[in-house]
Write a protein that binds this DNA or RNA. Structure first.
Lengths: 226, 226
DNA sequence: ACAAAAGTGTTGTCCGTACACCCATGT
DNA sequence: ACATGGGTGTACGGACAACACTTTTGT
């Protein structure tokens, strides 16, 4: 068998919805290369753990965040992407609910922060590229899978869902049509609780019914929002 | 840095359209494990080549096939997927035109064959899983990107395109609606050549105009066939 | 003349889109 | 009473789906 000395790492693009904006979780590197640069959380995979376990472990260690949705994004393996050794990074795309937000938490001396996606610092390695791909995946996926709910609290206002879509898709959405469409899917439960968000008429809380969604899925239903 | 001894491989699911059926390119392994089993073409990545280069090289070495379309599919890294060592495999999804079909060609003693997707042998490792994922990707992608043309000869009959869609999507398609839809995209050129396919009225040849397609893409056009 | 495949139009239905006013509360 | 955000219905147009007969060739 060929001698091969390529390292395998995982990196995660973790999105959170905070202060009516899309945010990404970044860590400040405390070792070279790119010391003191901001980077995606991640690290080398251990000999006997699955790729997914590696991501979960690294996220826990470096940021203390627990994600609510995760899927593989893409693998990056250009020979020079890491100046030290050849490293192939399997990257993941993840979403967290606000309750799982961790303003700052780490066992290492690294800094951890949520960055508004509009105000990103320069990133280490090819992490900028990875992040852009993740953003596109999020925008796409939002239109054909109900993953937006993994960015909101369990109980949320319809207007929150609507704003989330507008901010992530970067376009205006008609309130009436959006509500009609989403409600027609029959995957939300309207709760009997109202919330007064500052001034204005109190709004109803809704909850995503995952069971219902999967049931409809099996029957051929397709989530689809343009 | 942590000691890590994980190997990185690439594997390719290469689809071809042959004898009015969807086919996959498989090789017969001539070394353990899974000696004499059929498997996806692939192998370890060399120290200084990109992942894509590795796929192209392995395909050339093992099958002599040149692909017309290729994209990354998914990475598989379960600790026990290879009984010898830990191997993370970055898999690729590829399409070849009939002209680039190679009935059998190899520098190794391996056997190489096209298999009708309906009549597959048992596959080595987790290659069955990989293949299923690739098939889903193909079915999906066919509906929103004009990749079907990478499975046909440069000049083709409309009925071929239609059959290809029916076979891959495993459903009936209305001839008139399909033709109307595709032609409305303005990405095909009708040639002045007719072909007599056995009996029946001779049919016109068409050609995919890639430039036209990219031009329309930029202007916001979306290829979309249900 | 018959069999085989190619080519071609119309109509109804449904879904997406555009659009404006009243309601309930806080200040 | 006013400002703020929440909640709701209708009408138009375009796209999709269903559907059958004529044309051109080979035998």
């Amino acid at each position: 068998m060929i001698r091969q000395n390529i390292k395998v790492a995982v990196d995660a693009v973790v999105f959170g919805y905070k202060d009516k904006a899309l945010n990404v979780l970044l860590i400040k590197r405390d070792i070279a290369p790119f010391k003191d640069s901001w980077a995606l959380p991640g690290g080398l995979v251990l000999e006997n753990e699955s790729l997914e376990d590696a991501v979960v472990r690294e996220l826990k260690e470096e940021t203390n965040v627990t994600v609510d949705y995760m899927e593989q994004l893409y693998s990056f393996g250009a020979p020079k992407r890491d100046p030290r050794n050849r490293v192939v990074s399997v990257t993941y795309f993840a979403l967290v609910k606000p309750e799982h937000h961790t303003i700052k938490a780490d066992t290492d001396a690294n800094d951890v922060e949520w960055f508004n996606i509009q105000k990103l610092p320069e990133l280490a390695f090819d992490h900028q590229t990875i992040l852009e791909m993740a953003k596109k995946r999020l925008q796409n996926k939002l239109t054909y899978e109900p993953i937006g709910f993994d960015l909101l609290n369990d109980k949320f206002l319809f207007s929150d869902l609507e704003k989330l879509y507008m901010i992530i898709l970067e376009k205006q959405i008609d309130r009436r049509n959006f509500r009609k469409k989403i409600l027609s899917f029959n995957i939300l439960e309207e709760l009997d609780e109202k919330v007064s968000e500052g001034r204005g008429r109190p709004a109803n809380l809704f909850q995503f019914n995952k069971k219902q969604y999967f049931k409809h899925l099996k029957e051929g239903f397709l989530f689809d929002i343009k």
